[in-house]
Amino acid sequence: MTEWIISILLLIGGSFVLVGSIGLVKMPDFFMRLHGPTKATTLGMAALLTAAMIFFSTTQSGFSVKEILISLFLLLTAPISAYMMIKSAIHHKLDSIDRTQGKDNIEDEL
């Protein structure tokens, strides 16, 4: 039973990580590429680490919850690194594709 849960969580996590990387390759401009890795990869890692937590709790002696710490850390830091990257992209005046709406909302004051 636990083996099934671990397998399903692992497959969900792996496919979310893969979807994040597909988004990284497939999207046409930087601002759209940013969406895949920040969201899909973070959730995929959370699923993988939950699977690892259940695995180590059942196979080894004693309860193991320390894997939560990594997923907590990734959840906290993913928005911050995304913010830093989009800020540097705006500062470098990267082109967004033509059909982007509201481009005049960007004001670079640095």
């Binding site: 979807v19 988004g23 999207m27 969201k39 959840l75």
Partner: peptide
């Protein structure tokens, strides 16, 4: 976060040409 990730995964795997990005 969980529901949003499923939505974003569908958007990423779907056709790219239909997406309309924007700054608000």
């Amino acid at each position: 976060i969980i529901t949003a990730n499923v939505q974003v995964a569908i958007l990423i795997l779907g056709p790219t040409k239909k997406l309309t990005p924007g700054f608000i």
